[in-house]
Design a protein around this nucleic acid. Structure first.
Lengths: 251, 251
DNA sequence: CCTTTCAGTTAGTTA
DNA sequence: TAACTAAGTGAAAGG
């Protein structure tokens, strides 16, 4: 009836054995049981089994797979009655299983991806904050951290509170990208808020790799300071704490 | 030189326009810039662009895509110098972009997935809550439900309010997975909140399949009780009451 | 191996 | 739309 299902079964078995990347598109149902349980009725989806034994089942929409299995699971592939192609992916700890049944396969391919490429993630704003908290002298000598997470009422979470050499309170606003005047206003809001509650002088410092036009002027008019801090410099601070792959990056 | 890249460009443009599911395998680099920034050097990967405009770039291993873009992003596809196929996926809010450059394409396919299937997940935390509300004796004999949806101001929605045999108010915090100390603290917040408003004793009960280390101690120190409740037991309760689709499942 | 924390989290729900 | 929280979260780091 469906001779291609036989071919497909063989292809899948071969792909898994050879640790290739398998992609199958076809009409299927999916059943999951384990940490929770789910059932997906018939429809066309894309199945991907990767070299490390991870499984993804994608529908036509959505970033996330509708069903999946983390790496290192074991497989059993069979053709039931010659009409239903069954792919079973099981995992211990937690014990869970994912089962697909195909009655039609549109496309099936096993790829040997040659990929020695290096992946490098650059510093995020949050990491810049972490770096500055690890070494406040990045911003100014003699600066001392006050609290790790003095989160103010509203939005911004990249602000840090410190005390300078003279005992002034300091609010530090951190930007990863060239700072626009908007950043100066944001800093201003934090400083104003703090001034209402603190009975001593409060300074504001904006740190960013650079300033966009108009920001410097506004910053000066508001009476705040600017300190250039680059993502690269922050990376230097974080480097010892980060993994090898990451440290490779900034060469 | 690479006439197939021309075909591939056309295929991609067509697939995106027609909201098909596109799968391309080939040698590429990937650059991301937005909330963070990343660079992936040359290697063979699988690109998937789904009907809703989400993008996934998969390497040979790993459950997660090495790079991606959430749904609803916009595309620009071009063939530079006839030798480099460029796929650019951009998004506003947050402003970010993902760019792939292919110099070789192994496989490219555009799929029209017909998928009206229904997805159903069983025995989630929410369902455990429903089970306990249907049969509060799962937690303690003599327990009576106070209200179906006494949602407190803040976070958690898996808490249930009841009255015990002696007339004490009871807050029940439900976890589907082994509960960590965090769960005890969460329960504590709910109890504290209720105590401010209720002029009579308030108890707290944490229900979960089991407790992680430290949770029992913390729970005792806070003065709350623990009752083991498994997802399986809850399912027994829900089983007769579940809808047709759901009941099909456990056959 | 277990536990905790982070994530370019994503996704869903409510105000 | 923004804020908040759960997730079959997954992945990494630390004890």
């Amino acid at each position: 009836m469906s001779p291609q299902l036989t071919d497909c079964r063989d292809l899948i078995i071969h792909a898994i054995a050879k640790q290739k990347v398998l992609i199958v598109a076809g009409n299927c149902t999916v059943n999951y049981e384990g940490r929770a349980a789910s059932k997906l009725t018939w429809g066309e989806r894309v199945l991907m089994i990767k070299a490390d034994g991870s499984v993804l089942v994608h529908r036509r929409s959505g970033y996330e797979p509708v069903n999946w299995q983390p790496p290192k699971c074991q497989f059993r592939v069979s053709l039931d009655n010659g009409k239903l192609l069954s792919v079973l992916a099981t995992r211990q700890k937690p014990k869970e299983s994912l089962r697909l049944l195909f009655d039609k396969v549109t496309m099936a391919v096993a790829l040997s991806l040659a990929d020695e490429g290096e992946f490098a993630m650059h510093v995020t704003e949050e990491q810049m904050k972490r770096a500055i908290m690890l070494d406040p002298s990045l911003v100014e000598p003699g600066l001392k951290l006050i609290s790790e997470e003095t989160r103010m009422g509203e939005s911004g979470f990249t602000d840090v509170y410190a005390e300078d050499a003279r005992g002034c309170l300091v609010v530090i606003e951190i930007k990863r990208n060239p700072a626009s005047p908007e950043a100066a206003l944001q800093l201003n809001r934090y400083v104003e808020t703090l001034r209402k509650r603190a009975n001593r002088p409060v300074r504001g410092i904006l740190t960013a790799p650079e300033l966009r036009s108009g920001t410097s002027t506004l910053l000066a008019r508001l009476g705040y300071d600017y300190k250039a801090v680059s993502p690269e410099r922050c990376f230097q601070i974080l480097k010892p704490r980060t993994d090898a792959r990451l440290s490779e990056f900034l060469q």
